[in-house]
Write a protein that binds this DNA or RNA. Structure first.
Lengths: 185, 185
DNA sequence: ATTGAGTTGGGACAATTGTCCTTTTATACG
DNA sequence: CGTATAAAAGGACAATTGTCCCAACTCAAT
């Protein structure tokens, strides 16, 4: 549920020693928006500490949570390649510390550092591999099964996430979430 | 709805001239399975001609279609990097011609050919960018809105896909699809 | 203390969607 | 041809989920 990428983070820390001026560190407090949708950015972020949520907002204001980002997860990197506006927002859930790196420096590393290149590709593979079954599972199974799966994977999710976030993650209403949680005692 | 990647295909054809022994060509007829889930492969495929569907099957036999692949779409490439079993099946819808390349040669190109490397990354960016809003849209909107969207993006989808495929793509039952199509006249 | 905003919990009802089953139509094939 | 098989269509009913409420509680700021 909370995605991480420790290999990437570890390597990034090494790079930071080699190219200190490539990276800056920023801190966000809970509920601060780090990256806003429909805006253009020239940098991307990698989570050093804390948890953030990445979500779409539709025209009715309903949020749909894509992923919860933990240590080593990067966001805003897709825009390096497709040159589009940011297509979702990312907001701190706990207090968060991020590394920030410009598109330009990121591309430089990508071209000149084979290990970094491979780690970037692997991070993308992980994102695809994660999203694919999630789409299927939410389509195929009932809310109850989805919640049971959540509890299995992440037993104490209530301590970190609000009910609203859980509902937005599962693509259901708060009412439905409560109802099903009740029926499970 | 039918995904393509012409840039990738174009470049691949150039590579084929440079390294003819890297590639082989295979042909599949409608409904043949090209790649089966839970199996290990040592090659991956790129669609040259035709349309295929990529789908999960759950324990009840229900299919959930991830994407429809058209020209230039590759599949089986994630397993090059995560060394896992294939996590979904790909089946020809129309007759299909594919290029086949071994993991080993693919990795060789990835390391030695910067342009190829970039195209692979861009293909992954495209897959992520496509999956993300699809998850949200199907969660947030009614079946009716999803079908209207489909008709808008791909007016004559009925000519290519069976009703069952459309239902599996939208994550709904055939009965629900028929009902909603009726209510739209 | 008091207000107000945000979170949680749930009743009542409506709408949506699934399940099960039957029928019809199209298509393939000996 | 006729027959088997798959695809398409839909009736009847049940189950799930959403919508629209209202109430209780927490917590921060006044």
């Amino acid at each position: 549920m909370i995605r991480t990428n420790i290999d990437f983070l570890t390597y990034l820390k090494k790079l930071q020693l080699l190219h200190p001026h490539y990276f800056s560190i920023e801190n966000y407090t809970s509920k601060e928006v780090i990256l806003k949708d429909h805006k253009r950015y020239h940098s991307l972020y990698i989570i050093h500490k804390g948890i953030a949520k990445c979500y779409f907002t539709d025209e009715n204001g309903k949020e749909s949570i894509q992923e919860f980002f933990g240590e080593g997860m990067q966001f805003g990197e897709l825009e390096v390649f497709n040159n589009q506006l940011s297509y979702c927002s990312t907001e701190a859930i706990t207090d968060v510390e991020v590394f920030k790196i410009s598109h330009q420096h990121y591309l430089e590393l990508l071209e000149n550092d084979t290990a970094f290149n491979r780690l970037v590709i692997q991070s993308m593979v992980a994102k695809i591999s994660y999203k694919a079954p999630r789409l299927s599972f939410q389509q195929s199974y009932s809310i109850e099964q989805n919640i049971l799966k959540l509890k299995e994977l992440y037993p104490n999710y209530e301590t970190v996430f609000s009910k609203k976030d859980i509902a937005d993650y599962l693509g259901i209403t708060l009412r439905s979430l409560n109802r099903v949680l009740n029926s499970l005692q």
